[in-house]
Design a binder for these strands. Structure first.
Length: 450
RNA sequence: GGCCCCAUCGUCUAGCGGCCUAGGACACCACCCUCUCAAGGUGGAGGCACGGGUUCGAACCCCGUUGGGGCUGCCA
């Protein structure tokens, strides 16, 4: 008999969702969706002092942004305090745990008392964890010290206790989480044993996500808050796609693909056991791939905040929707990050070509006779038909016949005069959109500076 | 220190005893394409940490060494 699995993602609201947590959430989700199982969202907010309720909404938002949905919850551990308290009292009464003072000295008594904490008395024996990724991992209780399960300081349950109680109570079948939790597992198992439960879930301890120093990603040292990624110009599809590739690889080697295809192929047993470096470079590449995969309409929708948001570099009233729609496909092909979008099109909506000294230097002070060339272009464009192909041909012929320059060289001064930069979308299509008058005005203005 | 986990190109991975003179992807280099930049195409450089076993045969199995990491909190 195979009943459908139940898994959970259990973040503590002590910070925003970071990429490591997101990856754990994603793997739980992938497994649940793969197996037709259930994903429970549980908020581990037992520590009154560290929990910040206002962060919960942000965490849920980040999960949703990634396309991770859940079937039950969020369940708050802070609502279930009585459950943990009852379990703790039982342990106390049975002698499996004892009261402690602030310095962890054992205190007399077998019921919870204000101001006193509770510690488990670790007995002899071993705990064998059944881990889908690592096989069987055994711990000897002789190596484990007595540990606190109830905080006397603020009279709240510790995470080990809450964990031990919740997973069976929620009928969790598979615990999928980071490897940093592996060492805490024997203690959770011990609590359950002392409580008389014969239940243990199957575990899957995911390899840690690490930084360049190969250390566990930390919110403090590493810039890894998922909530920051939309504003950096990442698409949720790209982030989720990349995260799925950390610790797992599709059997057919096709890395960039829709999440439904990843769900089809995902197997917890195939997750590797060694840590993975969170590589922004690869994320960027995948983001570029996803941007290019968008239909024009999808791209326009994704680009909306980048062309009409509060941070656009041009005055809102100068933005021209039809011009934007016309260049959009040209820009879509060249972006890795949506954040790079404004710099591609700003010259179309600014009153003047943007200033970029480096570009100016490169195009105007090089070997190309910029002044003479601009003079010639101005004269030619004043009379030319205003279509991309004509403008291109005009410049090509002019450049070759009068200056002995290939189009690649001849276009540089024109590009910088009009767009301000040496790089950008295809020039002649852009000139058509900018219009003859403004193009000529910018060419003359640039010529005057030489 | 103790316990536990891990070890294939710089990075992410494929490989689950012979298909491996180790495959793919990112990054890097070269060339092609090209109005710039991208994208795309072609090619290149680059790896099984080390030492013992087991086996007819090990990247794959076992042991050890070394290295890295995690935990060791009245955080999770």
């Amino acid at each position: 008999m195979t009943s459908s699995p139940r898994v959970r993602f259990a973040p503590a609201p002590t910070g925003y969702l970071h990429v490591g947590g997101a990856r754990s959430a994603l793997f739980n989700w992938l497994f649940a969706r793969q197996q037709g199982g259930t994903l429970v969202l549980r908020i581990e907010d037992t520590d009154q002092e560290r929990s910040r309720p206002e962060l919960i909404e942000a965490i849920l938002e980040s999960l949703s942004w990634l396309g991770i949905d859940w079937d039950e919850g969020p369940i708050f551990q802070s609502d279930r305090r009585d459950l943990y308290r009852t379990a703790c009292e039982k342990l106390l009464a049975d002698g499996g745990a004892y009261l402690i003072d602030d310095d962890k000295n054992e205190m007399p008594g077998s019921t919870l008392q204000p101001g006193l904490g509770v510690a488990v008395r670790v007995p002899e024996g071993t705990a064998a964890i059944r881990d889908l990724i690592r096989g069987e991992v055994t711990f000897d209780y002789a190596d484990i010290d007595d540990f606190v399960i109830w905080r006397g300081r603020n009279d709240t349950p510790g995470f080990l206790l809450a964990n031990a109680v919740d997973d069976p109570d929620l009928a969790i079948t598979h615990v999928v989480r980071g490897e940093d939790l592996l060492s805490s597992t024997p203690r959770v198992m011990l609590i359950r044993r002392l409580l008389g439960m014969d239940y243990d879930p199957l575990y899957a301890h995911l390899p840690l996500l690490v930084n360049e120093q190969r250390q566990k990603l930390s919110k403090r040292k590493d810039d890894v808050s998922v909530g920051d990624y939309p504003a950096k110009g990442y698409l949720p599809e790209a982030m989720a796609n990349y995260l799925a590739l950390l610790g797992w690889g599709p059997p057919d080697g096709v890395e960039v693909r829709p999440m439904v295809e990843i769900v089809e192929r995902f197997r917890l047993e195939d997750v590797v056991s060694s840590p993975a470096f969170f590589d922004l470079k690869k994320l960027e590449h995948i983001n570029g791939e996803w941007i290019r995969r968008l239909s024009t309409d999808e791209f326009l929708a994704a680009a909306e905040p980048w062309v009409t948001g509060d941070d656009v570099p041009w005055p809102a009233d100068r933005f021209d929707e039809s011009v934007w729609r016309a260049v959009a496909p040209l820009v879509q092909e060249r972006l890795k990050l949506m954040a790079d979008l404004p710099a591609q099109v700003d010259w179309l909506f600014l009153a003047e070509a943007p200033e970029d000294p480096e570009s100016w230097e490169k195009a105007m002070a090089g070997k190309v006779p910029a002044a003479d060339l601009l003079d010639a272009v101005i004269e030619a464009y004043d009379a030319a038909g205003w279509e991309a192909e004509t403008l291109k041909e005009t410049l090509r012929v002019l450049g070759e016949e009068r200056f002995g320059l290939k189009l690649g060289k001849a276009q540089a001064p024109v590009r910088v005069a009009v767009t301000g930069r040496t790089v950008g979308p295809p020039l002649f299509e852009g000139l058509v959109l900018l219009g003859r008058d403004e193009t000529l005005r910018r060419l003359r203005a640039a010529r005057a500076r030489l």
